[in-house]
């Protein structure tokens, strides 16, 4: 059960970090606003960024993703499939169009960017552009 335990640790670390970084100033001075659909989490993976968004019920073909310079744009439509003639007991899910732009605080290598969509979760792998990579400086 070692893998299971490690996965659980990853989960707890993630939740702790999420609770702590809610109040961080990251993206604070940018034009990006909080509360726009879809909600996103941004992670660091080495020098690169991973942007994860929850878009349950959206088809892969219904997503349009653009990367330009520092900006990432996620566009799409979320539809609900309603059966004809059925009566509604609960309606909690939302539907409609979304178009969200985010500014990442580093230049993105657009050619190296990769998108994965699985089980309603969109993951964008955004490599930092070569010019924006940190360099180690030797002390002479």
């Amino acid at each position: 059960m070692t893998t299971g335990m490690r996965a659980l640790d990853a989960l707890l670390d993630l939740q702790r970090a999420i609770a702590a970084s809610r109040r961080s100033g990251w993206l604070g001075a940018s034009t990006t606003g909080y509360g726009t659909f879809p909600p996103v989490n941004v992670f660091r993976q080495g020098d690169d960024f991973v942007l994860v968004a929850e878009v349950p019920g959206v088809d892969k073909d219904g997503l349009d993703i653009q990367v330009k310079g520092r900006q990432v744009r996620i566009k799409g439509t979320k539809k609900l499939d309603l059966a004809d003639g059925a009566s509604v007991h609960r309606r909690e899910r939302r539907s409609g169009n979304f178009d969200r732009a985010l500014v990442i605080p580093a230049d993105i290598d657009g050619d190296g960017a990769r998108a994965e969509y699985r089980d309603g979760v969109l993951a964008l792998h955004l490599p930092r552009s070569e010019a924006d990579r940190p360099r180690s400086i030797q002390i002479s």
């Binding site: 999420i18 970084s21 961080s24 660091r44």
Partner: peptide, 9 residues
């Protein structure tokens, strides 16, 4: 992955 900005749990 190291979280740096989060909007949902």
């Amino acid at each position: 992955l190291e979280p740096i900005y989060t909007e949902y749990e």
